[in-house]
């Protein structure tokens, strides 16, 4: 994995909310085809970190560069960041419930995002087959014409992951994908994520150690807005500092 060129580089980032330092001089890198788990206790800054990468929060200091040549993400807004190839999945499933699964996926499909192109967009067979293929991958092939609001919780999570994959991003940020899922659903989610990580970078923020262990990847531990430890799951679980602040509770 050391031959893996760097895709995202976060360096020296700090952000303060009303005097509270949510992120404190945070630095780390993600390779271009890598599965990474980020863990840490509540308030460690996991969500804020994703907010910074996706352009929702502007840091007070630091740099965030992406791709080659490195683009400065801090100068871009959310939609521009999404267009350069960073996809984000929220903790709570957020799909467009008043529209069908098919429409949700078509909207996410990698295509021109400019209003003019979208007004005159007419779907062709290749788009339809792409959507059908994706739907099969996330197990929603027979649900395409259903309103997504009618799906079960797990199906909504998959639909959202499917929408992420439809965007065809280089970097996927996934926030607690397994929350509220049955064990079988978790199994399937793990497969989808690992498969995705073969061709792109996937960052999974997770609470559940079992799930992280199953992902079997490099782990970054955050604490008080900074990296506490990084390495394989076995490496970090044996780190004394990690045990003190997180596992040992």
């Amino acid at each position: 994995m050391s031959k893996n060129p760097t895709l995202l580089e976060v360096s020296g980032v700090s952000v303060t909310f009303d005097g509270f330092r949510a992120i404190n001089n945070l630095s780390f890198q993600i390779g271009s085809a890598e599965l990474r788990a980020v863990i840490g206790p509540n308030g460690a800054g996991k969500t804020t970190m994703m907010d910074i990468i996706t352009g929702k929060t502007r840091p007070d200091t630091g740099k965030v560069t992406y791709g080659r040549p490195g683009k400065n993400l801090l100068k871009m807004n959310e939609s521009a960041i999404a267009r350069v190839g960073i996809g984000r999945k929220f903790q709570r499933p957020s799909v467009f419930e008043s529209q069908t699964v098919f429409d949700n996926l078509i909207m996410a499909l990698k295509k021109s995002r400019s209003p003019l192109d979208v007004v005159f967009y007419r779907r062709d067979d290749s788009d339809v087959s792409k959507v059908e293929k994706l739907a099969a991958e996330i197990g929603l092939a027979d649900q395409l014409q259903r309103l997504s609001g009618e799906l079960s919780h797990g199906q909504k999570q998959w639909l959202e992951i499917g929408m992420l994959l439809a965007q065809d991003p280089q970097l996927l940020l996934v926030d607690e994908p397994a929350a509220g899922m049955t064990p079988e659903e978790r199994e399937k989610t793990t497969d989808i994520l690992r498969k995705a990580a073969e061709t792109r970078a996937v960052v999974v923020v997770e609470h559940d150690m079992e799930f992280v262990r199953r992902l079997d990847c490099r782990v970054t531990v955050l604490h008080e807005g900074a990296v506490l430890a990084e390495g394989s799951i076995d490496h970090v679980t044996q780190d004394q500092a990690v045990i003190d602040v997180y596992l040992g509770r």
Partner: peptide, 26 residues
């Protein structure tokens, strides 16, 4: 069409639409 899909999505959850790469403002 898809335009209708996008604007309805903006109505329901504009933040999410932004993360899909659509410039909500435009």
């Amino acid at each position: 069409g898809k335009f209708g899909s996008v604007i309805r999505a903006i109505r329901d959850d504009e933040t999410r639409v932004r993360y899909l790469g659509y410039s909500v403002e435009a």
